[in-house]
Design a protein around this nucleic acid. Sequence first.
DNA 1: GACCCGTGTGAGAATGGTTCTCATGACCAG
DNA 2: CTGGTCATGAGAACCATTCTCACACGGGTC
Lengths: 136, 136
Amino acid sequence: MSAPEVPVRRQTRQRTAVLTLLDQLDGFRTAQDLHALLRERGDAVGLATVYRALQALVDDGLVDVLRGEDGEAAYRRCSPVHHHHLVCRSCGLTVEVADPPVERWAARVAAEHGFADVQHQLEVFGTCGRCTPAQR
Amino acid sequence: MSAPEVPVRRQTRQRTAVLTLLDQLDGFRTAQDLHALLRERGDAVGLATVYRALQALVDDGLVDVLRGEDGEAAYRRCSPVHHHHLVCRSCGLTVEVADPPVERWAARVAAEHGFADVQHQLEVFGTCGRCTPAQR
DNA sequence: GACCCGTGTGAGAATGGTTCTCATGACCAG
DNA sequence: CTGGTCATGAGAACCATTCTCACACGGGTC
């Protein structure tokens, strides 16, 4: 069919600012958070632009997106290879984890039921070592 | 501590209607969908009530909730035992699947990183056998 | 069966995250 | 330097979900 249509990503102060900020942060942050942080820094960027930049980064595979229980999207700078996340419910600390067994399991189970073109999403939530003592 | 506070779930026409409808449906449906379906049936229920009924059902473990990529919540009548879903992207057909290996994997990986009180969410998406030929 | 109280209901308003609109401004190839 | 294209931003629009509050009703009790 036609070319993959690469829409010529321009480099602007705003997009650089968003990516730079994400590089300096550890856990998942919402777009609203990032917008507020940029404003605090004096590196003001419009809210709509933050959303657009994040979408572009997600499309390029530079950033991962996660939906919280309330449906709000959270973003994080991530490695481009396939992986999953181990997220601390308390402090937001995130560890990237790979898992060949799960990949295989998902593919096998899907095949058994006649499913093709399989994708999966897996996230693990818990309380990290630093936050556990504080609990209770 | 205090009693678990079980808030006396009353049986009303509306709640019965929501649960009955879910029993007759296969895949995940949004609250808006369910509301529209009930109205078509002549079994009209207020939108706010649909949301309240669904929340109660989720709390009771009778219904599972899933967040789509757009953040909209989708609900489905499900068995109360722990399981994951194999969902068809095209027709919404859903299969419940259990997976002891993944449970163990998640627990082990979390422990290795010092995480406690672990939960995980895993969903597999694909195209079911009936929908695959239609694609492309 | 009649009564009561606490809970459920529903219409509409409010909320809040995300996307759209459109006039203006910035990037960059030529 | 210039032009055209894409990006920006303020605010409006959108839409799922939740809140408000007056009223209805379920289901014990007598």
